[in-house]
């Protein structure tokens, strides 16, 4: 039987591998950026799941709240998400510049033009 307690980790690993495969195997720069995003999202999910406690509520300091989620991993991953957005922005900006120069975002095309130029 599948252990559903750990299913979140299977999701994380699946997304992680999907993203990494896309980054490494794809020759299209935009698809590489998409792959990077999927890869990073898997880590976000990993962090978010770390702080969650079964039956826990939001961490509010009030009467009657005893089980609550650990907010620290969530705060950390907010920072990492911001970093991820910045990285994506830089990557896309680069892709725009590369497209302006080479008229393509396919690695093979760019490579060919560089070889022809030499």
């Amino acid at each position: 039987m599948i252990d559903f307690g750990n299913i979140i980790y299977w999701v994380v690993v699946f997304l992680m591998m999907t993203g990494l495969y896309l980054v490494l195997a794809s020759g299209n720069l935009i698809k590489k950026v998409v792959g990077l995003n999927i890869f990073q999202s898997s880590v976000f999910i990993l962090y978010i799941s770390l702080g969650k406690i079964a039956g826990g509520t939001a961490p509010i300091f009030a009467e009657g709240i005893e089980r609550y989620a650990n907010p620290l991993p969530h705060v950390l991953i907010l920072t990492a998400i911001v970093v991820g957005v910045a990285t994506t922005a830089v990557a896309l900006a680069l892709a725009v510049r590369i497209y302006a120069v080479y008229g393509s975002v396919e690695e093979a095309d760019i490579e060919k033009q560089e070889v022809d130029a030499d």
């Binding site: 990494l20 980054v23 720069l29 590489k32 990077l36 890869f39 990073q40 990285t87 830089v90 990557a91 680069l94 892709a95 510049r97 590369i98 120069v101 760019i110 560089e114």
Partner: peptide
Amino acid sequence: ALNAVFSYLVMGTI
């Protein structure tokens, strides 16, 4: 330089 940065960015982010 643009291509070089793109591969650096991908590797660096990984």
